[in-house]
Design a protein around this nucleic acid. Sequence first.
DNA 1: ACCAGTAGATAGTAACACTGAATAGCGGAC
DNA 2: GTCCGCTATTCAGTGTTACTATCTACTGGT
Lengths: 109, 109
Amino acid sequence: MGRQMTEMLKGVLEGIVLAILSGQPAYGYEITARLRARGFTDIVEGTVYAVLVRIEQKGLVDVTKVPSEKGPPRKVYTLNDRGRTDLDEFWRTWGFLEERLEQLKQGDN
Amino acid sequence: MGRQMTEMLKGVLEGIVLAILSGQPAYGYEITARLRARGFTDIVEGTVYAVLVRIEQKGLVDVTKVPSEKGPPRKVYTLNDRGRTDLDEFWRTWGFLEERLEQLKQGDN
DNA sequence: ACCAGTAGATAGTAACACTGAATAGCGGAC
DNA sequence: GTCCGCTATTCAGTGTTACTATCTACTGGT
């Protein structure tokens, strides 16, 4: 992955995962697949699981273990109220940045 | 500063500084002031100087020392060719992220 | 003599994404 | 019946980054 993308994902990837979970509950492997389908082709499992551990510890998601027909049991993550609050805050922060960068891009500096 | 903003700035702040320099050369203290004027009210000098040291070491800027009427000599940073290339790449990476997040925000997840 | 404003530097910290590898369960091919 | 591939999770170690807090240094005004 490009160095710039890696750095830019910091603080954003967590929001992306929360946003994905806001649509419907999902488990790690599935989330990785969705990210890939969305164009984030270079994000590997290890990275996603680290995010999931973090948002669980922060109490932004509820977790249930669901047996899989194929492979070890899945840990299904569901966004809870605190997670939704955090996601809202994420979008506000993102919106702020987006605005400022749009101005900069227009060249009024 | 909010935790989310701090993390989100990683990888972005450097691009912001390069973008500011693309308009015209500037020195650290001045750049901090411009950032503040742009709404980044919580970014302090120490943070900006760290970025400047980094982009200088990467060879993205040329540096000249200019005496100041008031206070110690200024280090004026000028974006060079490598810096411009890096800035282009930054905007591409940013554009990619912006697109994906816009989709996510629209709720198609 | 002191202080505020200007200007830069730096050591230490915390957070984060990445790398690479390991573990574990199941199905099918051979 | 053993090996391979796919599913699924975990974890230790690394590098990069922004922040905190503090320090130095120069000038002008009170």
